[in-house]
Design a protein around this nucleic acid. Structure first.
Lengths: 335, 335
DNA sequence: CTGTTTTATGGTATCGATACCAGACTTGAT
DNA sequence: ATCAAGTCTGGTATCGATACCATAAAACAG
């Protein structure tokens, strides 16, 4: 095993005095090889330090044993748990994950998808559900499972694993209303491509509308800000100015809620006394040891596992097409 | 382009009435093909919706245009920024990233590495620097760049991109001392494989020792807890009990510091009046709109970019072997 | 003991691209 | 007009595995 030269299956076969195909079988279907030869081959593999070449295997078997993932971001922790469980579950089944992030840019999405398809993945995971025509066409033309996650699109391309952002936000708004809140603002970025955030805002608006309340208030539409602590902090001030009667702030994410809570403390605003605050996500920061934040807990881990299962066994998953992992409204100290 | 059948280079070549090699050249070295043919080929590519097969290309050129990454975790946000910039930078150069996480488990690391090598990556990124003998042997036997990140090992396998966790922690401890703090505790998990956390603790201990102070205090060695908000919150209580004189808590991460700060508020402990608190990482939560936490800002983004450069041009990077991206002690409101 | 099924094994073609080389065609200089 | 040098282009071998088929050996039924 000298530097720069890979040991091939042939080398192993020669050393073990068998055909290459037998080596291949020892690796893929060891039960079909007699014990004597299997042992000999395994010994040769160890001795030579043989690492099979999956690119060659992929070519001849047209199974790459790789799945592709296109996530809108890995930078904030939203998908981290999902990616973690997805990648572990897949690796346990002998598959690898090819990861790309788009930063919510649709042009990047198409490029990323082409680059991904060039690796001939056995399936694809996407966090976005609104695709350009070209992307949709590409995805439909390939005969591999496509799993859209973290949302439940009305018409999934193939399989969807997620929960209803709309319904969850709706529930949270109703919760705030049931707690006697009457002037509820919604705080969330307006990244045009962040479908999840948009659906949450819509759920909020629907709930208020349904309760005959309004007008719903949220940061100016044309502010294209990334949701985060800073946004929560900055816009809380604005909200207070705009509506002194404000008695609740519903945030698009736990991070935004943290920004609000920090700002509230600085201004001496009592939570939940003066103002109730809710988050979305159920991240560690919302826990009782953290901000003790009332939030929507999302089973990010389960989404990863369920998507992995869907990729590995698409037929079964397609029977449902939409896999709803649900969510949980967690009532804690802030609302 | 019917379902399940991929268009091949030959199909494109036939339609454009050229040889396959010309199609290949249009994709890789377009300047070497006359404009007329190039146009014809590009048209054919578009018409057929051709997506090249990189697995085949990898086989014949022995360049996979894929890099592998083995990170100890993607779950907490530590590496998120680094992965994001790494993957973007690589993709801009036409490369993809194969991602695996080990959850700090050395057995998993070896498996993951074997699986990765089976894809014949053009380079590998690792977040861990203490490897099993087998892993080190594997890495040394392959003739591809290996980049260890987020730390500066004394003897890098190949190239290292990071900063000195030891020195940074040392600086922070000195900062606390310079602020008149005399009873400084260190709070951090003891995951045995988390080298970074360990080096920070050592830096802290060294600084205190140097200042003739001590005994250094930190949670019991045998507690194998993951660092996080909960740890900060739980152990802050314990620290106070153990040493009522405590006037500073230096945390292994911003998350732990947040746990401490939350707990301090619940207990009515003044920060920084009664007790100073410092974090490590410089994540969003430490910003002035958040906790306004005194911390060590780490250029996670730069680490990603620098590693990408090192992977793409290892010869230049090897001239230095160790690329120190530095860190910044950011003094804010908590210490 | 023969004939049939089952199991184990290897040879050869193949997957879809690129490398290498050879030949055809330009271009420009003389 | 001719030749040398340079530019394009395509044929064929090749990368390292697996699929497919054929054969040899073993197991089994009658």
């Amino acid at each position: 095993m000298s530097k720069g030269k890979w040991v091939t299956m042939k080398d192993v076969a020669d050393l073990a005095q068998v055909g290459t195909i037998t080596v291949s079988r020892v690796l893929r279907t060891p039960e079909k090889v007699t014990e004597a030869k299997r042992k000999r081959v395994q010994k040769a593999i160890r001795e030579l330090g043989y690492v099979p070449d999956n690119t060659a295997g992929a070519l001849s078997s047209s199974k790459s044993r790789v799945f592709g993932a296109i996530v809108s971001t890995i930078n904030d922790s939203v998908f981290a748990q999902t990616l973690d469980s997805l990648s572990s579950t897949l690796r346990a089944a002998g598959y690898e994950l090819l990861l790309t992030s788009t930063n919510y840019d649709p042009d990047v999405e198409e490029d990323a998808l082409r680059a991904l398809l060039a690796r001939r993945p056995d399936g694809i995971v996407l966090t976005s559900t609104s695709h350009s025509a070209e992307v949709a066409k590409l995805l439909q033309s390939v005969n591999i499972p496509v799993v859209e996650i973290w949302q439940l699109p009305p018409a999934p391309l193939d399989i969807a694993v997620g929960f209803s952002n709309f319904q969850a936000a709706c529930d949270m708004a109703h919760h705030l209303i049931s707690k006697g809140r009457r002037n509820i603002a919604f705080l969330g970025g307006h990244e045009p491509r962040n479908e999840r955030g948009r659906r949450r805002r819509e759920g909020y608006a629907a709930a208020l509308n349904q309760a005959g309340m309004g007008p719903a208030m949220w940061p100016n539409e044309d502010q294209d800000l990334r949701s985060g602590i800073e946004l929560g902090s900055a816009f809380f001030e604005e909200c207070l100015k705009e509506d002194p009667q404000l008695d609740a702030v519903m945030c698009v994410s736990d991070q935004v809620a943290v920004g609000v809570l920090c700002e509230a403390r600085r201004r001496g605003v009592e939570v939940p006394g003066d103002i109730a605050v809710s988050g979305f996500g159920g991240f560690e920061i919302s826990s009782p040891s953290g901000f003790d934040l009332t939030t929507i807990a999302i089973p990010g881990y389960d989404i990863g596992v369920a998507s992995a299962k869907a990729l590995l066994d698409p037929e079964t998953a397609r029977a449902n097409k939409i896999i709803d992992v649900g969510y949980r409204l967690v009532e804690r100290g802030t609302a």
